[in-house]
Design a protein around this nucleic acid. Structure first.
Lengths: 220, 220
DNA sequence: GACACTATGTACTAATCTGTTCATTCCCGG
DNA sequence: CCGGGAATGAACAGATTAGTACATAGTGTC
């Protein structure tokens, strides 16, 4: 069923079913991402990944060298995704208060829309971020968010709407924590408190709450 | 070096080095907790656990049946730890505002003091809480916190200090999110933003911030 | 002090899993 | 149209790993 892959990018596409390096690489990466996100690093099986691929295990080692190499490629690829969208928000033109709300909403939505990414981050944390730290690709990645926050905060303070004593990194931590928890800890939290956190309704309510928490914290 | 174990609890202790069911069980559980917390479910090795124990792998299967059985015991044991301390705070006698601050501070401190527990929760979440859900021991466990919160909120509202529209569960989610993130995501967050989140100083600052975030959210 | 039952150690097995070997096919440049 | 490097497949090897069979020792009970 995943036979229609290899479409986007790659010299293949025009009928040739065999010999498609870019498509094969992409295919492996996609499957591996799901597999690692679903089972963790040790839990993921190279054989299983290979089986779900339209190619063979041989190719995984041909392109990525080892299981760890594959995992690193998956991780870097996932982090790359964020950088792309980030920045396209153009918050500079908005009122600081509106801009802040938009930023929090965006963060919340993005994390909710990218469960696999969240899970990879969780997995990295369990491994004390050793892969992340060894990767140059991810060097100073999310610095953009901090800059954006810094801008919004100063503008808000200048206009008197925001209070003093707000550190960009700390605020980002607060926003991240609230957004992250909703995706990452939903299984255990729901299990213990018998609540549904994944329904459209619950998400909308929580989203508003998270924005509220942040706004009450920054407003003067 | 862990040879001095088996001390607390158990019919052993009085010199007899052999035959000490309670101590052996306790020993296995302790070692397994660290091992699972450090490497995840799949990453943990039964042989490794056995090696770090003063007993043999045979005993693990004798007492816990399987790797999964051992993991479940570890999980339940870890959750049991919370229930014990919880409730000994006696927040009912304090002013609602003080009580709320104390509760947040307690949550933050507890999670910081129990990294292994946090890691086990992370691991459970990666596995979609399937073990947690299958465990009767953990049935309605943290309900106590919700009751406590409910009390504090109503008292705060009656005295006019707290605003309306505060749901105990949601508030608990906010508090948990902020406390949890600091322990759970510290590896990746520190790696990306080059900050230290584990120093005494950083912890104290963050703790105050978290309390502040919550208080600004609940105060009228 | 023998009996029955629990607790424990050693050595093994069967399955699993990562990584490799060897051979084959594809495809582009001359 | 062919020669050589890149791409791919099938099967295999070596190591690891969860789990077990067998034998033995301790221990409270009568």
């Amino acid at each position: 069923m995943a036979r229609t892959r290899s479409s986007e990018a790659g010299p293949a596409e025009r009928g040739s079913r065999t010999q498609d390096p870019v498509g094969v690489k992409r295919d492996i990466l996609d499957v591996a991402t799901k597999e690692f996100a679903a089972n963790g690093y040790s839990g993921a099986r190279v054989d299983e990944i290979a089986a779900r691929t339209r190619t063979s295990k041989r190719m995984i080692y041909y392109y990525f060298g080892s299981k760890k190499g594959l995992y690193l490629a998956v991780l870097e690829n996932a982090y790359r995704g964020i950088r792309e969208v980030e920045g396209g928000l153009n918050l500079d033109t908005l009122e600081p208060e509106i801009a802040m709300r938009a930023l929090v909403a965006y963060t919340f939505d993005y994390q909710n829309a990218h469960h696999e990414f969240i899970r990879l981050v969780m997995i990295e944390n369990i491994h004390d971020a050793e892969h992340l730290r060894s990767s140059e690709v991810i060097e100073g990645l999310n610095v953009g968010v901090i800059e954006t926050l810094k801008q919004i905060i100063s503008r808000g303070q200048r206009s008197g709407k925001f209070r003093n004593g707000l550190a960009p990194i700390d605020l980002h931590m607060t926003i991240s924590a609230l957004a992250f928890f909703n995706v990452a800890n939903s299984p255990t939290f729901s299990a213990i408190f018998k609540v549904d956190m994944r329904s459209m309704n619950a998400l909308a309510i929580r989203r508003a709450q998270v924005i509220d928490v942040v706004m009450r914290y920054v407003l003067a």
